[in-house]
């Protein structure tokens, strides 16, 4: 818990990045990356679950306030914080690992990371896009928007992670 400040700072930075820059991106008219879930994905796993949910809720609410979509990001973030431990458990498989681990490059390999980020982003984006377009019943649009958002967000998050947590040379 010695890195509380760095976690808070990281969350604030990605939230500001999201509302002031990423929300203005509309690639091909509908792809808007949700980079702010990076802050949630990098939260320590040993944090009490209720605290994790509260952080997810607050982050989602903050983004929702800026996009006037009250509730959508909030629900999606709370849900991904809820399913996060199960995803980690499933990805670790039968390998018995100690509970203290961080989902960052260097600790985990690329395959593990892309699955982790990809699955959680997919859930997050599916929830948001499906909730938002519920009334339109345009399946193709919904599908393309989910896939596009997920791919772009995953790509951006992985890039950011590899920039800020460079893999040590000794591993190679």
């Amino acid at each position: 818990m010695n890195n509380v400040a760095s976690n808070i700072l990281r969350i604030i930075i990605v939230l500001l990045l999201q509302v002031f820059i990423c929300n203005l991106i509309h690639l091909f008219g509908f792809i808007t990356p949700a980079i702010y879930i990076l802050g949630l994905l990098l939260l320590p796993l040993e944090l009490p679950k209720s605290v994790q949910y509260l952080i997810g809720f607050c982050c989602g609410l903050f983004v929702d306030m800026f996009t006037h979509t009250l509730g959508f990001n909030t629900a999606a973030c709370t849900i991904i914080m809820f399913i996060r431990p199960y995803i980690v458990k499933a990805l670790n498989g039968r390998k018995t690992s100690d509970s203290v681990e961080r989902p960052i490059p260097g600790v985990k390999d690329f395959k593990w990371l892309i699955s982790y980020v990809g699955v959680l982003t997919l859930v997050h984006q599916s929830l948001i896009v499906m909730l938002e377009t519920m009334k339109f019943h345009n399946f193709l649009y919904t599908f393309i928007a989910i896939i596009g958002n997920t791919v772009l967000t995953t790509f951006l998050i992985l890039c950011t992670e590899y920039i800020f947590y460079p893999v040590q040379g000794k591993n190679k």
Partner: peptide, 14 residues
Amino acid sequence: LFAILLILSIIMMG
């Protein structure tokens, strides 16, 4: 807590 937060956000959505 999860249930409460989820219900809160769904209310907001509605």
